[in-house]
Write a protein that binds this DNA or RNA. Structure first.
Lengths: 210, 210
DNA sequence: GTCTATACCAAGATAGAC
DNA sequence: GTCTATCTTGGTATAGAC
């Protein structure tokens, strides 16, 4: 019913679908639950998005956009490498935290649903700005030549930075549980994380006279 | 039918379930497919394991055992820290590769199915040998005092090592695709990975006169 | 555009013959 | 223990009234 504070039924449904599907994955999500969360009738989902597949596609599109919005956040490649690294990591970790559960969702779906998801991802990347990795690679090579850092393979470095950021975000909570880390100490470890990573990476790569 | 090369129907079913569920997750797995893979009738799944839930539990138990078998592989904590680190990482990466797809499965399921999985994990850890992290922590602290390495937080270090190992294993292929890395270069990056990680971590933590 | 009712089907589970 | 046939549930999808 068109109550006063209506934000458009279609968007309402899409938002609800987003929430539910991100949590439970494609298989786990139920049309009924999406309808409930949206506060509308189940039949309306089919009215606006013909099928679950279509709805899922729409959600995927949103999620991808959301992620890349953060990732592409501007990095100043003219900074000294140390500062570049720090700002890159800060941006990146910040983006990960902003992104909420999307990353977990992707890691989840990529595995169980890769036949559908990987082509979609590929397609999306065609249109997206793919220059970041290239710029990063070039900058690393320059830094090596200028003796800002030791000779490291750009791919591995990028991989390392992303690993350190993303993996902690995803598995950290589980890890805390497994190791019985007290709540208070968890907080400390979490807030220290960014600086720890920056220091770790920088120490790992910085150039040293021999 | 009790054909000659029968390895026991129950085990046959369990093996099939393991394969299918690891690939598709709990929600995605179909009893029919499991039956097909096992080469038996669907009804037999219910005969041996009353329900899908029970079957899932059995698979989970197996997967957990499988993972921890590798993880607990003996590490010699009396080695110099540099060598310890190298052997730890080598063991770890090796275990990850041996473990095949189990890790991906867990990362997947932990997100979509955490209400069921996390308690199970907790319970399993009660019985498992939880001494490894403690030993590692103690060894790190000693290494700091002995000036083998700079002052690093043991938790972060352990987290870092695991991140670098596991994340690459899981996301690497996706990454290659996204960055359009040629097949041949992929191979090289993969085989270089272990040594790269060892060097990266060691450079990051080693003690240096100032 | 939104609802109710219902068709349709796939998947988990059971009964009962062999 | 193993099969066929069948029940039941629950989820997607559609028809049709309002």
């Amino acid at each position: 019913m068109s109550g006063g504070l209506d934000k458009g039924t279609e968007k309402q449904i899409l938002d609800a679908a987003y929430k539910v599907i991100i949590q439970k994955g494609k298989q786990g999500a139920r049309m009924q639950e999406i309808a409930d969360v949206a506060g509308v009738n189940k039949a309306l989902l089919h009215y606006y998005f013909r099928s679950k597949d279509k709805l899922y596609e729409a959600v995927l599109q949103n999620a991808l956009t959301e992620i890349f919005k953060h990732v592409t956040s501007n990095v100043d490649f003219s900074l000294p490498f140390k500062d570049l690294l720090a700002s890159f990591i800060r941006n990146h970790i910040h983006a990960i935290r902003e992104g909420g559960d999307i990353l977990k969702f992707f890691l989840s779906e990529v595995w169980t649903n890769k036949d559908e998801l990987v082509p979609k991802l590929r397609e999306f990347l065609q249109t997206a700005d793919g220059s970041l990795p290239k710029l990063f690679q070039a900058r690393v090579k320059k830094a090596v030549k200028d003796r800002e850092i030791r000779n490291v393979e750009p791919f591995h470095l990028l991989m390392n930075v992303i690993s350190l950021d993303v993996f902690f975000h995803i598995v950290g909570p589980l890890f805390f549980m497994m190791m019985n880390v007290p709540k208070l100490y968890q907080k400390k470890l979490e807030s220290d994380r960014t600086d720890q990573v920056i220091e770790f990476v920088w120490e790992a790569v910085r150039y040293r006279e021999r």
